[in-house]
Computed example of a mutant assay.
Amino acid sequence: MRSQRQPPAASNRGTGIAIVIGLHVLLGWGLTSGLAKQAVDAIKKPIELALLPEVLPPPPPPPPPPKVVKIEPVQKIVPPPAYVPPPEVVPVVTPPPAPIQVVQPTPPKEPVVIAAAPVVAPPAPPPAPAVVKREISLACPGYEAVLASALEEAIDRVGIRGTVQTLIKIRGTQVVEVTPLSGPKEYYKYVQAAVKRMRCTAGGADEVQVSLPVIFS
């Protein structure tokens, strides 16, 4: 008998628990949906801003009116004219005549004669060296061999036939000047170089001039 009565009590308890849970769910849903709606409505409401009028400071008081000072004209006092005494009259005294002095004229001085400086004649130039003309064989012995060896290749290089007339000046034991006078100009430099190789002497004279014809054939 006891086993048959227990099932109805257990089913009643389960039904009560289910009802309580359902009430809690409904209550929670109602609270949640109501609060959410209120929050959405609060957000959707426009925000009103109140602008407060700016309080301006009171204007400063006006400046006091300027003081007017009256300037009275000063009367000028004209002084009386100063007393000017009349000028004194001084008698004019005529000075005595100046004494006349007789001055004897000074006799003229004798003119000073300045003697001209003596003219010094310039020193005479040194005498020109005595020039002696001499034969080439006496002034320059052995000249033919020197010219032959020095001018051996000149005829082959120039290839012109002719005679170069040359004037030689000798001082002491040196040939101081070689002047070509005529002939083919192509040989001038060869002749001058060859003549300066020759051994010449003035033989005691100051200067010896020698005429040398150089023949190219």
Results as ranks from 00 to 15, higher is better:
P127Y: 03
I168H: 07
P59V: 13
V20F: 09
P46I: 03
G172T: 07
A121L: 15
G162M: 11
A148H: 07
E54K: 07
P7F: 09
P64S: 14
C140M: 02
P60Y: 05
D41L: 08
V131N: 02
A128W: 01
V74P: 02
I77C: 03
V132C: 09
P57F: 06
E152Q: 12
P80I: 09
Q192V: 15
P59Y: 06
L181A: 12
P125H: 02
P141D: 03
I17Y: 10
G16I: 13
T15I: 06
Q104R: 09
L26E: 00
V175C: 05
P127A: 15
I215R: 12
Y187H: 02
P111T: 07
V89F: 12
I17P: 00
P180F: 08
R2E: 01
P125L: 08
L138N: 12
P99R: 13
Q38Y: 04
G28Y: 00
R5M: 04
P118R: 06
L151E: 01
E110L: 10
I170A: 01
S217V: 12
V89I: 14
R5V: 08
V176H: 02
A39H: 02
A205E: 13
V132E: 12
P65S: 13
G204S: 10
K133H: 14
E152V: 14
I100G: 01
V69K: 11
A202Y: 00
T201A: 13
L51I: 14
R5H: 01
E110M: 10
D41I: 04
V175L: 02
I100P: 00
T163Y: 03
G14E: 14
I136N: 03
V131M: 09
K133M: 13
V131L: 05
L49K: 11
H24L: 06
P123V: 15
P46M: 01
E152A: 15
P111H: 03
P66G: 08
V210P: 00
I160Y: 07
Q209S: 10
I114H: 04
G14Y: 06
P91L: 12
L212T: 06
Q165V: 11
L56D: 07
I21F: 12
Q101K: 14
R197W: 00
W29L: 15
P105K: 09
V120A: 06
V69R: 04
T32S: 03
P111S: 05
K70A: 04
G203P: 03
R157N: 03
G159S: 07
V176S: 05
P126W: 03
P118S: 04
R134I: 05
V120N: 07
M198K: 02
P91R: 13
E144K: 12
A50V: 15
V113R: 00
E110F: 01
R13K: 06
C200E: 03
E110A: 02
I160T: 15
R199D: 11
P99G: 08
L147E: 04
A82I: 14
M198I: 11
G22I: 13
V195N: 01
S3E: 10
L167S: 08
I170M: 00
L23N: 07
Q4M: 03
G28A: 15
E177K: 12
V132T: 15
K109N: 11
G30S: 12
V90M: 11
L151H: 08
P213K: 10
L147K: 01
L212M: 09
I160N: 07
Q174M: 05
L52E: 07
P99H: 06
I168N: 00
K185C: 00
I100E: 09
V20M: 10
I21G: 11
R161G: 10
